[in-house]
Amino acid sequence: MADVATAVVAGEMTVEMVQASQIGMKAMAAAIAVGSTGIASGIAETAIGSAAVGATAENKDVFGLVLLLTVIPETIVIFGLVVALLLLF
């Protein structure tokens, strides 16, 4: 921040530029929040998902249960999404 302040004072950056870069930073943060949580959910769901498909192939009745187990890690990306939306709006 000190650098930005000196840069503004020195006339190298205008206030508009600083505001624009702040918006960009926010967007970047939101992207990281959604992106990284999405990857995390994906990694967590791969193992559960493949096991779930196997179990369903053996016994169709477990479909409801394995669906529950498969979507448990989705919570992570939901939190990421909420964080991103809070950052942006």
């Binding site: 989705e74 919570t75 939901i78 939190f79 999404l81 909420v82 939306l85």
Partner: peptide
């Protein structure tokens, strides 16, 4: 909390 927030998926 996670279950309530989960409904945000409808918007997303």
């Amino acid at each position: 909390i996670s279950h309530t927030l989960s409904y945000a998926r409808m918007v997303a």
